[in-house]
């Protein structure tokens, strides 16, 4: 902060769920706060603001990240998908349907992050990325229970919906 005490601002463009936004942001603002407080995209949740819970998980250029750990100003020109962008019109994304089918949430507060993370996991496995529990590093990893549990461990759920989350993702992975 300089001597004038004025917030430093910057104007950036973000593509959020296929819509272009030109916005002026406080350079201290996280992507999460810009989504929630400025764009009224309240799907991404704030559970800790410190990268410790995964409630804020969104996809930036297709990769899952914690939106609370990203300064919005550093994402100028990025494309962002939030939970609001997963459904195709009125048709739910298969992972959203599977979450309902398997009752993979209770309070629902971690759910947007779980869903975005799950979409990220499916893409990472399809792209052949191993995890710490992957046995055969040369094959495309199969998303069995252990793989899903490992890869989803950045998304905490205090309601304890993990058992159903793993089942939901497992079904979509098949």
């Amino acid at each position: 902060m300089d001597g004038t005490n004025l917030p430093e601002t910057a104007t950036i463009t973000l593509d959020v769920n296929g819509v272009d936004h030109e916005i002026t942001v406080d350079t201290r603002s996280s992507l999460l706060d810009v989504l929630r407080e400025h764009l009224d995209l309240i799907g991404a949740k704030k559970g800790c603001d410190h990268g410790q819970c995964g409630a804020c998980t969104v996809l930036v250029d297709g990769r899952r990240i914690n939106a609370c750990l990203q300064l919005a100003v550093a994402l100028h020109g990025s494309s962002i998908t939030t939970v609001e962008g997963l459904a195709d019109g009125d048709g739910l994304h298969p992972i959203q349907r599977a979450f309902i089918e398997h009752d993979a949430f209770q309070c629902g507060y971690c759910t947007p992050g779980q869903l975005c993370s799950a979409v990220g996991v499916l893409a990472e496995a399809a792209a052949g990325w191993p995890s710490v529990v992957t046995q055969d590093l040369s094959a495309t990893p199969a998303l069995d229970g252990d793989e899903i549990r490992e890869r989803m461990s950045g998304n905490l759920c205090r309601c304890g919906a993990y058992v159903n989350i793993v089942a939901a993702i497992g079904e979509v992975a098949e």
């Binding site: 995209l41 309240i42 609001e84 739910l92 009752d103 629902g108």
Partner: peptide, 21 residues
Amino acid sequence: FDRVEAAEKVTGTARYAYEHA
């Protein structure tokens, strides 16, 4: 029964306290 608010919760449209302005 599926939760009656299930669709809102998986699409990110369920509004929690802080999300009201």
